[in-house]
Amino acid sequence: MGEAISVKDVSMTYHSGSETTKALDSVSISVKEGEIFGLLGPNGAGKTTLISILSGILSPDHGEAKVFGMDCSRETKKVQRRINVVSGFTGVVRSLSCREALTYYGLLYNVRNIPQKVDEVLKMTGLEKSRNAEADDLSSGMKQRFLIAKGLLNDPDLLIMDEPTVGLDVESAISIRKMVKNLRSEGRTILLTTHNMFEAEELCDRIAFINSGRIIATGTPVELKSRIVSKRVIEIHCTREDCVVGSLSPLIGVKAVIKSPNLVHVTVDSYKKMKGVLKALSGCDSDVFSVNELEPTLEEAYLQIINNKPREGLKGGSGGRKRLQESKERASDD
């Protein structure tokens, strides 16, 4: 599998009067063909600067950015023929219907048989009924679909998606994620930026965390999550939590036991301790309905890696960790 994106040691500083802002600081990433690569970071981290460089509308101060082996600054037009960008923050050209606007973009990209291609992308994005509506008058969700349709017009080998589901309702976001999955199955390379960790985890093969213009970590979602795991949490649903706490607390390797009604969270230093936990539970005078390992979420991994925060200090995570936090709060209330 070839390399779709190669960014080596790219730096970019913006100047505004006497102020300078280092947007990218020696950034290097590599994206393979056919991969969905996520670029995650807080606002102002440098994501947009990086995709602007890859799109050819910004020249870096230093370093080399290549798409399919072509330099984005020097061979811009060649690069632009093979890519397209879907950005949740851009608007659409005014006073043109969807069909006319897509025809206009088709002309810009020298698309062959434009009417047929326009119909095809309108169908693909579910915009057939809105073909004669003014593109600028579409609702947010429909506008996003329109932008995806525009992004697919030239059959790009690389599609850059900058927060494609930003501001969308749940149904529209699900529909767009489904579209992205379909694009992956067609073998397209996708560079995705998003603030939605669930989306990133669901869609991306690999992810890079970027903060203050630097790549902090790169890996698969599983690899990134595994980086923050120093302790493991086991969740036990039971009838007599006092009994469970009493049985598990003395075990070696158990770091903390927190109870809440019908629920006990046990923090162990390794899941190898699971066997001991199960054995202790078997000797406990309580019905046990379930025993689950709680995995850290990508959101936790993101927050900890980006902010370099200790795991225990995390808040606001979704899924298992969030439930644990609530349990802790309930326990402390008790």
């Binding site: 799109s55 050819g56 509308i57 037009k77 632009q80 023929r81 890519i83 397209n84 960008v85 950005s87 923050f89 851009t90 608007g91 659409v92 050209v93 005014r94 973009y105 810009l108 990209y109 020298n110 600028d136 525009k150």
Partner: peptide, 18 residues
């Protein structure tokens, strides 16, 4: 400038048009 006002200038400038 109309593309700029429509916030669609990026679409124009990332296209292969010179």
């Amino acid at each position: 400038v109309e593309e700029y006002w429509s916030k669609s200038l990026a679409h124009l400038l990332i296209s292969p048009v010179s």
